[in-house]
Amino acid sequence: MLKFNVNGRVHSLDVEPEMPLLWVLRDQLGLLGTKYGCGIGQCGSCTVLIDGNAERACLVTAAAAAGRKVVTIEGLSRPGLHRVQKAWIEHEVPQCGYCHTGMIMAAAALLAKKPRPTDADIDEGMTNLCRCGTYARVRKAIHAAAAPVATVTPAAKKG
């Protein structure tokens, strides 16, 4: 049995130690916000926080993840929305949205380390792939989320 701490809850699971954390989350825990995109750490759709660092869940084995603090999109902010999620809604960032749970986790980790990232910091810190090409809005939303919270307007409809 391996013990996982995911979004503040502890789960004891009988899983293969080599099972990637991605599949522990998706198949064993039903946390479907973390996405499979490539399985080889290229795309970042499976990005989660492990002890506060953004990591590709497809490359971290169950054995390596056990006992560490894992946060997925479902646990990023409870209750309510994380400022990155608010900025993502405010700036209408996603298109298909598939890569964006990973994007949001990577952005949250980036902002935790660099509260006011430069464009170069964003280029370096955001290695996630987006086939829809939402990158300009990702950048804009990260800058917005980095600004004082008061300037981020709530996620109200504008129409």
Binding site: L32, W88, G97, T101
Partner: peptide, 27 residues
Amino acid sequence: KIAGKPVRRLDIPDKVLGKPVFGVDVT
């Protein structure tokens, strides 16, 4: 009044929350 305006997309909030909306999420 509604068409032609930059109203917010209706599908974005669920996607930002990581709700299971995609084909791969069917359970």
